[in-house]
Design a protein around this nucleic acid. Structure first.
Lengths: 257, 257
DNA sequence: CTTGCATGTCCATTATAACGAACATATGAT
DNA sequence: ATCATATGTTCGTTATAATGGACATGCAAG
């Protein structure tokens, strides 16, 4: 056939990939949905989605969520996730660390990791202030928007980083574009210093602190961070950083992910 | 072809099913394994397993666990599991319930559900005794071996139950066989009473209490149970049951799974 | 050295999975 | 009544995924 020049000729997607696309989509929607709706939203053939959804239902990876045909993530995923958590048991130590940090600083403490090529808050402990600053656990956020992002990609080469982060993620919430060169500089700097702090890009009133949690190979596999009102952040900078670093070094991490 | 009489002619397995078979296998092994090893253990073609493992690695469903080719359940599963947990938020209430029960009784309290056609402990709070009785969270156990099992299948018909539970699961750990008829009687009785207690089948020194946690349709979707030394169980029977039932009725459950 | 085993890669074959399009049905708006 | 939209099902076609077997490598036992 002639139209071979662009290989965008609507390739067939693999069942496995579609399946995980469905799971990821439901995770982002945070609500049960109809197969039909899923198909149209993710741009997949309906017949394929129906078949996959049935397969996933059979495996308890999905479950019917209401008596009305809507499906959502299933129990099996919980069990598998729990098994992961048990093996790489960051939770327990992590919870302690966040507890300590939140108590000592009275600010909101977070434990963050990469989720694919996005940043996400895995665990959070809100601070003790009357007006607390918090964010959603499990949300996927563009890496360049976050302080932690500067540390989490520190083990990659410049080229790898640029290939890894979707280019549109350099557009900040206010519409401005962050120069990738500038970002790379900050990455190198942050990684070398073992810290990164800045006035948050995603709003106008918070200051963010991030320090790396490293594994045996000295690779940053997660971060501990603190979100504070700007003036308090500036006033307590050294104290906060020290608190974070102490907690981070106490978190012993095993294998290289 | 002639050999059509048995359709055991080594059908091709579906990628998705094999994939989940791999995940489930790793979950049971509780340890990272080589693709090769996985293939031989689950009796799947090596080439298929290698291809699937690579696909799963790409999707972060699996991760390399040591620098040595071994793979284990990945971070994405944790995130998906967390999303499930958030939607059907049994965890928070559940933790409270277990806490209360364990405090009031000083015995080990558990929150249990079905995992496919097995019984599993989802959450546990150990009691306050000098010698505590506990069991592994996340282990799959034959339904007939447990007190909770009598309640968890209560919504099915006799025939459905017998089809659902693998027949060899009626063989108890000591080798004896439990008569399915007897089991069905106990199921009906337990479901009607809203409780089941017995001297545990899996050991010689514990007594188990189980009460149902029901959803809006009055279907048992989980159980709360208590594991105590036999004499204490007998001595405190009414008190323990009342404590469990109070906690169970406080656990409000939403949709039908 | 040879042999065997465990591990990983590559490739041709063919059973089948993903797909699109047609069909079926209900619901609500015009 | 008519149309549009959302939902779910069925089926034939064809691209391709699952498979077995050949090949390559490293390592340890004989």
């Amino acid at each position: 056939m002639e139209a071979a020049e662009t290989n965008l000729t609507a390739k067939r997607a693999r069942g496995l990939d579609r399946a995980f696309e469905i799971l990821e989509f439901l995770r982002n929607q945070k609500n049960p949905m109809r197969p039909n709706e899923i198909a149209s939203q993710i741009g997949a053939p309906r017949s394929s989605v129906y078949e996959l959804v049935n397969l996933l239902l059979r495996n308890q990876i999905l479950e019917f969520a209401d008596g009305d045909g809507r499906v959502y993530l299933g129990r099996k995923l919980y069990f598998l996730g729990a098994a992961y958590e048990k093996q790489f048991d960051f939770t327990r130590e992590c919870e302690n660390a966040l507890e300590t940090i939140a108590r000592e600083t009275r600010e909101t403490a977070q434990f963050c990791m990469l989720d694919g090529n996005k940043y996400t808050v895995v665990r959070m402990k809100e601070g003790a202030r009357p007006f607390r600053i918090s964010s959603d656990v499990g949300q996927s956020v563009p890496i360049p928007w976050t302080a932690s992002g500067r540390l989490l990609v520190g083990h990659m080469s410049d080229q790898e980083i640029l290939d890894f982060i979707p280019s549109q993620d350099f557009q900040l919430p206010n519409g401005e574009w962050l120069d990738p060169k500038e970002f790379l500089r900050e990455v190198r700097d942050a990684t070398q210093q073992g810290e990164f702090t800045f006035d948050s890009i995603v709003d106008s009133f918070t200051h963010c602190f991030a320090v790396p949690v490293v594994n045996a190979e000295h690779r940053c596999v997660a971060t501990l961070c603190l979100v504070s009102p700007r003036e308090d952040g500036l006033a307590n900078r050294e104290k906060y950083l020290q608190c974070l670093k102490k907690a981070a070094s106490a978190l012993g991490f095993p294998a290289p992910p």
